[in-house]
Write a protein that binds this DNA or RNA. Structure first.
Lengths: 346, 346
DNA sequence: TGACCATGCACCGTAAGATCT
DNA sequence: CAGATCTTACGGTGCATGGTC
């Protein structure tokens, strides 16, 4: 596979041309599938390419075409299940479309670091930049600055000046609440994500809209930070609320913490309190009790991001697919409310 | 930031040269910090660079130097906490060293896909390829084929023909078992990872070596697949083993499943059975009970991979650091064995 | 005339040799 | 003579132009 001649040089288009007895331009035409090449000539060139194991130089090609078939990907935040999965599937979709992806990952959402990473990508002549970032601040960091290349954000809030793909967090939250309401719950509380998280805000919106539609009260939501620890802390608070019979938790990690706190307080899930999470992380089906949750299709999201790129670049006229709506996965952490608790509600 | 003139062109080295009143070669000398440039001239050139917002074209530079300052990263398998963290920190370390990283992620460890991804990276003239792969098959896929660039594998088993960085899984496993032994446990079972996982094999090795050293029996280990579900399945088997008082589980996800199964069987953790996991995932501190586990320093691992790259490329003479030894994090899932169970052992 | 193919040049840097002060 | 600077060549493509049958 090392494709090198005696002098350690890889074959060039001129080597191929000489071997095939044509000009380098004809080789170029064959490479790029252009017309006006006689089939016999084409065959000779292809034979020479194979024989010399010639592969075109991306650097030389990029220099003259100013196209690199390379995309930039910026991912901020901890390597949690959602963003990591989205990045993985985006990467696979890009490879399928014969694009390379230069990735810039960073734990912190620091505006200066993000901007310098974006500039680095632009200098590498990426054709578009995809941003996977849960926090609003990540969009702010790249908003307004003129990158010179299209920016596609995976984000659940709208923003001028950049393209966007997302999953319907609002609809997912409504699924969760509708499920609890249909089981007979009337006092349904919410543990949300951090205030700067766009997904969290959409889920709060869905929760309160669903409650309003059913004429049910919406108590002030609690706000965690996505971690199991914050779920535990707020779970202890929720355990003292004798009126509520169900909690819609904004992600599965916090839901695990909530269930732990409820168990410690002597409350049974789902007999005393029903719990619905969000994401369907791998652990969700195997905690005690298995968690009813809202599954997000990160595969679709990653592919949608790539579809967005192709749409913007004009490679592909296919429209970017509609945002997919999450699925409710009913497991054992939800059931009809117990008589005792129902009796307490007004 | 769009750095373009009226015709939409970015500045070239010639534009800078003209503005500074020097030749483009002098500009190049300034860019590359070469000597023999008068301070006054250097200042004029730097002023012109700033004024035109000139940045050198990586494509043109790569064409002539055959160096791209770009690395390839291949990551296989699900986006679990360990590999995702390692990839993140490697990425940050690479950026600190002013390298770009082209990433190829793939869910499946398919030899053909891996090889074509590696070839794609080589065509992009990456200067080295880093492989993060838990499975032995991933090393097999790239073993032997002549890539033409150095390959640095993050892998816990040795392999000819490639450089390697790793965390000391064997020592980590010994820490876990030593902890259990020091608490008084004498019948310590093991739930390992899948047979094709290199980390899993090392942990089995550490577990059995520690037992042998203490003169304790090593029963045949069970083998899961890293998922919480497989932990649950094997946990039900373990629950019927009346003699064992502790289980060393090869990762935290499976440990969660095991604890769930034990709880279902009416066994208390740690009163009846002590559990030690591996990894210290974010959930570990908040499950019930909080999990004693072996923390791996994925940050150090990612940086070690980058150090390995720099070492191979000769950019940096600093030695690749010694593999770091994991830390034991003692939480509530381990305690001295109960009298009842101890009495049962011979 | 049109299908086929060759020639020259641009792209934007770095490296080596030539020239000037 | 040597430090400072310039001139020339080159890398590997794709595009525009032109030539030939």
């Amino acid at each position: 596979m090392s494709d090198r001649d005696d002098k350690g040089r890889v074959a060039t288009i001129f080597d191929v041309a000489r071997l095939a007895g044509v000009s380098h331009q004809t080789v170029s035409r064959v490479l790029n599938d252009l017309p006006n090449v006689r089939p016999a000539t084409r065959a000779r060139v292809e034979q020479a390419i194979k024989q010399l194991r010639y592969v075109p130089s991306p650097a030389a090609r990029a220099l003259v075409t100013r196209r690199t078939r390379t995309l930039g990907l910026i991912v901020t935040g901890a390597p949690d299940y959602g963003p990591s999965s989205t990045a993985l599937h985006f990467n696979e979709a890009a490879r399928d479309a014969r694009y390379s992806v230069i990735t810039a990952s960073m734990l912190e959402t620091d505006a200066a670091v993000m901007r310098s990473a974006a500039e680095l990508l632009v200098r590498q002549n990426v054709e578009a930049i995809v941003l996977i970032a849960a926090q609003r601040a990540a969009l702010d960091a790249l908003d307004g600055i003129e990158l010179g290349v299209p920016l596609i954000a995976v984000a659940s809030e709208d923003r001028g000046g950049m393209h966007r793909v997302w999953l319907d967090q609002y609809a997912g939250a409504r699924l969760a609440v509708d499920h609890l309401v249909s089981l007979g719950h009337r006092e349904i509380r919410h543990l949300g994500g951090p205030p700067n998280a766009m997904d969290a805000a959409e889920r709060v919106r869905g929760w309160s809209a669903a409650l309003a539609e059913h004429g049910l009260p919406a108590r002030e939501p609690l706000l965690g930070d996505w971690t199991p620890g914050s779920g535990y802390v707020h779970g202890r608070v929720l355990a003292r609320d004798a009126e509520m019979t169900a909690v819609f938790v904004s992600n599965d990690q916090m839901a695990i913490g909530v269930m732990h706190a409820l168990a410690e307080a002597g409350l049974s899930v789902p007999d005393d309190v029903s719990i619905v999470g969000f994401d369907d992380i791998p652990e969700a089906a195997y905690v005690a009790p298995p968690l009813t949750t809202v599954r997000q299709d990160f595969d679709a999201l990653g592919r949608a991001a790539m579809a967005g790129v192709l749409g913007v670049l004009g490679d592909d006229e296919r429209l970017v697919p509609e945002p997919s709506v999450p699925d409710l996965i009913v497991r054992a952490s939800t059931s009809a409310p117990s008589r005792d608790r129902v009796a307490l509600t007004p």
